[in-house]
Design a protein around this nucleic acid. Sequence first.
DNA 1: GCTTGCCTTGACGTCGGCGTCAAGGACTAC
DNA 2: GTAGTCCTTGACGCCGACGTCAAGGCAAGC
Lengths: 142, 142
Amino acid sequence: MRIGELAARAGTTTRTLRYYESRGLLPARRGENGYRTYDEHDLRLLRQIRTLQDFGFDLEETRPFVECLRAGHPEGDSCPASLDVYRRKLGELDALIGELRSVRAQVGEQLARAERARDALAADAEVPGGPEPVCELGGRTR
Amino acid sequence: MRIGELAARAGTTTRTLRYYESRGLLPARRGENGYRTYDEHDLRLLRQIRTLQDFGFDLEETRPFVECLRAGHPEGDSCPASLDVYRRKLGELDALIGELRSVRAQVGEQLARAERARDALAADAEVPGGPEPVCELGGRTR
DNA sequence: GCTTGCCTTGACGTCGGCGTCAAGGACTAC
DNA sequence: GTAGTCCTTGACGCCGACGTCAAGGCAAGC
């Protein structure tokens, strides 16, 4: 199978495959005409890479999985190095999610505060003569 | 106040301030010698930008806040455009957090599965003669 | 006058993961 | 032979928010 077919079957592009090869992640055999040649096992490796990429792993982080498969193990995560990557990723994800939740809370608070301030001004504007004095002696309220 | 002092007081760099100016976000007056000149109000604007940046807003998203302050409003979020940015950001944050939680769950599942597979192999290795057959007729278990 | 430290503009570098174009070779179908 | 489709390498572009370097101007202290 040539590069175009592999790309199509994996739902990616030839450029991407050449990029992976340039990174040493997915080297290719060459035919007599210089064309890259791939087999089903390469498709397996490529799918492993793509799956992890979809999870937000960067390319280097997929390397242990690919090497594990290439070493003949049944799954990309059959090797300790892959498990380490999983664990590290879980830690990163937890940290990131925590940060984002914190930010979300703060932004939500800012929005609520700003809306209250806006509504207070709007309510003031409805009173002809401007807002009520903060401190009053009961004269106008009666 | 010149650029170096403003940068120091805001905990950023001169490069950053020049970048903001190049983006039209924080223009500066110029002294006779061509030096940029800033005042306390600029520091206020800059701090608004930095706060939002810390929340993960990109530069363009801080613009409504800065313009709101520059228009004389008491807060950067005293204007409807700023509130819109808040709301949009909340939506983005919720979506992102949701995705990350989903990924976290999937990665956690993969890790658990891979660890079970590893432990199963390890347990097999402890039995001299290899793993028990999946289907047996009771001969060896007795 | 000389050093030191701040300032100026301009321009290239960074990071990741490719997209996109250019120029040319290989192979198939007609 | 030639049109069309695939392949090759090489190289520049992109995105955001700056970092970093270069060459030179301005001001202050000695």
